[in-house]
Design a protein around this nucleic acid. Structure first.
Lengths: 107, 107
DNA sequence: TTTACATATCGTAATATCGTGATATGATGA
DNA sequence: TCATCATATCACGATATTACGATATGTAAA
């Protein structure tokens, strides 16, 4: 219920790249876009998708993938959670919703 | 009623700049943001706001202002109309609405 | 037709972003 | 402890963006 706050320019910058848009789009429905043999369906839905899966799907190198994910994270569009060796990323649906709402009513 | 089509990356790039966001925001309600002694209220609402007024409010030079306006125009966010010496810019409300809708449902 | 005004375009230096390879960090297991 | 795997960070060249001054274009008015 708390109003999320965000930096408009950083948000739009994060979104103005094809690869980062793809990642966000894939994470909207992870189980249809990522290999469910390599990561469990429930885990994808609950904690997010690990960097290796995103990297393979993106077909860019590990460094680029990691940097893009942290750009998305700094903008607030995704959240990261480390469990053991893995870092899982998932979308911040509330922020994306608020962004749509901002564009509709305030921009 | 026709579905507007747009390039997501170009749109987000156009929006990822403080000055261009300001212009868009001012053009949402031109008569409260621009000098109605220098341009008639009805004209602002109907054909848009001329570059000089935008330039003065933006406090950037003429060249920068003109370039930013054409960036917004190429992205489809504003429309330009030349009348005599002046070029008037106004928002493309439909595209902005479709963008909000896209973020809410597709992104 | 010259002059003035409004806007667009060109050329630019400074700065930011892109995507990479190399290296560092952090966790696990032998 | 050491080796290995997953991820993050660093350094970098290539390319794009920023904002500007100078100049070109297009319109109208003297």
């Amino acid at each position: 219920m708390t109003k999320i706050q965000f930096n408009q320019v950083d948000l739009f910058k994060a979104l103005s790249n094809e690869a980062r848009l793809k990642i966000l789009y894939w994470l909207k429905d992870p189980t249809t876009h990522f290999d469910t043999k390599r990561q469990a369906i429930e885990e994808m839905n609950e904690v997010g998708v690990c960097v290796s899966l995103i990297r393979d799907k993106l077909e860019m190198n590990q460094s680029t993938t990691s940097q893009y994910l942290s750009t998305l994270q700094r903008a607030g569009l995704v959240e990261a959670r480390r469990i053991g060796k893995w870092t899982y990323y998932k979308r911040n649906e509330q922020l994306i919703h608020e962004l749509a709402n901002f564009i509709e009513t305030k921009l």
